[in-house]
Amino acid sequence: MRVTNGKDFWAGLMFIAFGLGFMVVARDYSMGSAVRMGPAYFPTVLGGMLAVLGAVIFFRAFVSKIPHPVAVFPFRVWLLLGGLILGVVAYYSQGLRSSGIPGEIAHMLLAGLAIGLMFAAFGQRSLWVILFSVVIFGYMLKPLGLVLSTGLIIFVSAWGGHEFKVKEVSILFVILAVFSVLAFVKGLGLPMNVWPAILE
């Protein structure tokens, strides 16, 4: 048996994983009956159908006449597994969050690391650097204010691309920072602080 269609191979695995995943998690909820469907009913049926379709796609990968390499995109299996394991650990250590501020921060870092590893498991460098810049922007917007977090997202995401010229990016940053303060805070009146929260 040889995989001829790498895209079908991975797509099949992905659908099987999602289908089974939803079915397994749904086992915690009550199934009900056809007359009174419980919260588990519909997801279990759908998950089962998805897993079956996934299996068909998976087997098609071995007989397909459309050739695709198995390595369809950069994919780092160890990072993905690491991320998943950390994710499970984070799920079962949620008690930490109610044990005071250090515990809460530790849990956030753990969950953040899990998600970061899963980002880094796929694609070229540009993928995870860019998405990472978006995530920091989201979490830094409140403590750092709009101007500084705009700097973060612009510099980090520009660094993730092919060409990075400090002078160009600095000009871009100034223009965008001025524009977003004027348009979003002054113009649309979105509730965001312009400067770091400590200064205001």
Binding site: V134, F137, T150, A158, V169, L172
Partner: peptide, 8 residues
């Protein structure tokens, strides 16, 4: 980078 910023 500009599109990303506005999306975010």
């Amino acid at each position: 980078p500009s599109i990303l910023l506005f999306c975010a």
